[in-house]
Amino acid sequence: MQEMLRVEDLWVSVDERQILKGVNLSINYGEVLVLFGPNGAGKTSFIMTLMGFPKYVVEQGRIYFKGEDITNKDVYERAQLGMGVSFQRPPTVRGVTLRKIIEIISDGRINKEGFVEYAERLNLSGHLDRGLNDGFSGGEIKRSELLQLMVQRPDMVLIDEPESGVDLENITLVGEAINMLLGKDKVKDPKRSAIIITHTGYILDYVNADKGYIIFEGKLICGGDPRDILSEIKRHGYRGCAECR
């Protein structure tokens, strides 16, 4: 299988604090990877660095996407190349409606009926004319993020803790949306790849992941079948996993 993303010896700091310490990773086209890790391990920093947010300073290492070195490309350029991110806590943009943003993102690729249908499927049609993330609940934020990504259609989807702040009823909806986004609801493989961050592993009940990794103290440890990894974490805790590697 062809490689979509490669990360080589990635060292990242935020506000002069070392967060990532030599991360190596490779993801093929169509592969879905789940990243486990305790709070503060560097999970969010990792995907924010992949997306190119300037707060995350790459001190060493390279990031390649579809064969191109994107280490010095900005957020917009990476989005244009086919990367997209679902934030855990996106900022509120008052005065700019969800509908407006979707129209801009879709850039004519999806007609109005198309995204209204997506919004209906995500139970968000009542939110289209509200300010972006303005007063949205935890579940609404996740669904709004996924709706935007469904319109954006990135080849590499980075999803930060899709289950956090979402009630049980809505987790199914979020899981379905991720599958839809990744094209898993279709027989033909759309070759979309994903990195999904999870703190609890609940999302594995809904999304079929190919690989799992633990990130611990800024390093990737343990890689393998995501369900096996989750059961190891449940049995030994993150520190136990770190010590046995």
């Binding site: 997306m51 947010f53 300037p54 900005d74 957020v75 917009y76 990476r78 989005a79 244009q80 997209g84 991110v85 934030f87 996106p90 900022p91 943009v93 008052r94 005065g95 700019v96 407006k100 943003i101 801009i104 993102i105 850039d107 300010g131 935007q148 954006q152």
Partner: peptide, 22 residues
């Protein structure tokens, strides 16, 4: 930056946010 991550250029993102602000 949030809007840029959706594939919107910096210039357009500032313009959209400003229009929304106004």
């Amino acid at each position: 930056e949030y809007l840029m991550s959706r594939g919107i250029s910096r210039e357009d993102a500032v313009s959209v946010i400003t229009s929304g602000f106004l």
